[in-house]
Amino acid sequence: MSLVTASGLVKRYGSYTALNGVDFEISGGITGLLGANGAGKTTVLGMIIGLHRADDGALRVLGQDPWSAGAAVRERLGYSPEHHTLPPDVKASDFVRHIAELHGMPKEEANTRSSDALWLVGLGEERFRPMGTMSTGQRQRVKLAQAIAHDPQLILLDEPTDGLDPVQRDAMLELIKNVSTEFGIDVILSSHLLDEVEAICDGVVIIGEGVTLASGALDELRGTGATAVVMDIDGGDPEVEAVRAALANRGMVVSVLGRRLTVEGDDEAVFDVARDACVDAGVGISRLSRRRLSLEDVFLERLG
């Protein structure tokens, strides 16, 4: 089932067109919302939450129009903002409880769940501390806790690793992954960091200059445009050279990097040629697969 579906989405602010016909479909799991600054990510998130009304096109979130059915949709959404300016004198537990109550949790339930959510993000011992005394990493965790405390179906995380050091960043990404895989909450992760999206996301929506550059499952996107076969072979330089020569004799375009040979072309025949070349050279193969594009490759390719 699609969690979010956008078709022909247009949003204008005066004479400025922020979105100019955006189309995408977001299913379960973790989806990365990617784009450079000013690409329109912010506007898309705002429209999913129901803050902005589309000038044209259609948007469905959890099966409903987020503008007309705003409260019903937002009740099942969690949102972690980008900014770090949470009320500094409020205790983390009070803040998370308050947000849970806002999303419809009865008082006692909100109380219990806020405590649980803070434990789950690793702030169990710190939950009674005012947020102003917390580190950036801890505040990011509080924001995640308040997003999940009310058992949402979908959470929107806006730059959740902003301001974190590499260790904290990896831990946060692991937490987000757990939210999806263990708690069963679907995630939309807005980020401009390709590697973190690549590390944990199942799908991706790339937005640039107000239009959709790419969207779909990450594996499919990285497979798209794979125009070569990669082969790692057993052995040293003589074996590598022997295979390269055998491939060249068969008319293939080959590049070599260490023990890895990249053979241009992606149809099934290339696999057969590569296998036969190795047999002729008497060399074993440890890996034979299509070349996988990185998300960065996809991003740059779509940006043109």
């Binding site: 409260a71 109550e101 419809g104 649980d116 789950l120 999940i148 263990e182």
Partner: peptide
């Protein structure tokens, strides 16, 4: 293991949100 629990009860809706605000 504190775990994560889903919530099956009735939510308080907009009136509840106004009240807590």
């Amino acid at each position: 293991d504190r775990g994560y629990r889903t919530f099956e009860g009735e939510r308080t809706g907009v009136p509840g949100a106004i009240r807590t605000l």
